[in-house]
């Protein structure tokens, strides 16, 4: 039985999360088919067809899928669910929105946010903010799965799958897109960046974030934040790293003025190298940091920018 992976994209480019999710989906047994549902998104389907491990790409190109709203997406996927043992997607806010709706319509269980595939029916996933790892087995014919992309390597691009068009399903007509306010940035996307520089409550205000941005620009890094910094309005909601925000696992994570609450650690403790800059030497963030600097961030961060410059960055 095959796996249907629903692609994450913005109608123009295939998200890095999908490229990683393919690696997980390819381990779930049978063929991996990728569904690209969107509007004017043929280029995305072509990109998906080049990924190693993809046997077929299904393209549902229709205005009603432009924003991947849950109600029409679920209707579409349910209409084509026959023949698939597993329906999967990255654990993005889109996937988290429509996947449980698909599961309930198919009367099957969902395994959320998997971090390892043990076999076609058995998965690992973090619970309790990553303080425990659950191994779950599904003993039924169908299931839905959301994939924590940062836990998997990107698939190669040596593939050449065919692209088939699929028709739209009836739109349940329950929801309507009004508008969106997307954060504009020339920096890399938070969840796929190789380096992340995050600020917490210690930053004191949004006006101080440009200080971190200068360091981020030297490192080609994305900028993130703790919940406290988002709640205080320093930065937008999509900066939040943690249990209930984004999960990141870059090569280098620099936490500045962040205490290291378990909810924050849940979103970054799988980073390869962690640096903490905090003036309180007792801050729990130091318990997970490879390199800790006890210092006032308002002197340490400008100095860091300067030292990186001296190091040729």
């Amino acid at each position: 039985m095959n796996t249907l992976l629903i692609a994450e994209h913005n109608n123009e480019t295939l998200a890095d999360a999908t490229v990683k999710a393919v690696t997980a989906a390819a381990q779930m047994g049978g063929e991996c088919h990728v569904l690209v549902a969107g509007s004017g998104c043929a280029a995305v389907a072509d990109a998906a067809a080049k990924l190693d491990g993809v046997a077929k790409v299904l393209l549902a190109d229709d205005a009603q899928y432009e924003k991947q709203l849950a109600e029409p997406m679920a209707a579409l996927v349910v209409s084509m669910a026959d023949g698939y043992a597993t329906i999967a997607s990255p654990a993005s806010t889109n996937g988290k929105n429509f996947m449980p709706r698909i599961a309930a319509l198919l009367d099957c269980s969902q395994i959320s946010d998997i971090t390892a595939v043990i076999d076609a029916n058995t998965f690992e996933r973090p619970i309790y903010a990553g303080n425990a790892i659950q191994t779950v087995k599904v003993n039924e014919a169908k299931k839905t799965v959301t994939i924590r992309a940062t836990a998997f390597q990107a698939a190669g691009d040596g593939g050449s799958a065919g692209v088939e068009a699929v028709g739209a399903a009836d739109n349940p007509g329950l929801s309507e897109f009004v508008n969106e306010e997307l954060t504009k940035s020339d920096r890399p996307e938070l969840t796929s960046a190789k380096v992340v520089v995050s600020g917490g409550r210690g930053m004191q205000s949004g006006e101080n974030f440009p200080m971190l941005e200068k360091v981020a620009d030297k490192l080609g890094a994305a900028v993130g934040a703790s919940r406290a910094a988002v709640d205080a309005g320093f930065v937008p909601n999509d900066y939040q790293v943690g249990q209930t925000g984004k999960v990141v696992a870059p090569e280098l994570y620099i936490a500045v003025g962040i205490s290291g609450a378990i909810q924050h650690l849940a979103g970054m403790k799988d980073s390869k190298v962690i640096v903490a800059i905090n003036k309180d030497e007792e801050a729990p963030i130091f318990q997970v940091a490879d390199y800790g600097l006890v210092a006032d961030l308002f002197t340490a961060v400008p100095e860091l920018e300067e030292e990186l410059g001296k190091a040729g960055l």
């Binding site: 269980s109 395994i111 058995t122 973090p126 619970i127 990553g130 303080n131 425990a132 790892i133 659950q134 191994t135 779950v136 087995k137 599904v138 003993n139 039924e140 280098l252 403790k269 190298v273 962690i274 640096v275 030497e281 130091f286 318990q287 997970v288 940091a289 490879d290 390199y291 800790g292 600097l293 006890v294 210092a295 340490a300 100095e303 860091l304 030292e307 990186l308 001296k310 190091a311």
Partner: peptide, 30 residues
């Protein structure tokens, strides 16, 4: 309907070292 095979501790991350200066930090990272 699901079978919980097991619930395990996550891999522990060990605390690393404290650096004294920003210069030392950059040197170690590099």
């Amino acid at each position: 309907r699901l079978e919980i095979v097991k619930v395990a501790e996550p891999a522990e991350r060990e605390a690393g070292v404290k650096v004294e200066t920003v210069g030392e930090l950059v040197d170690k990272l590099k």
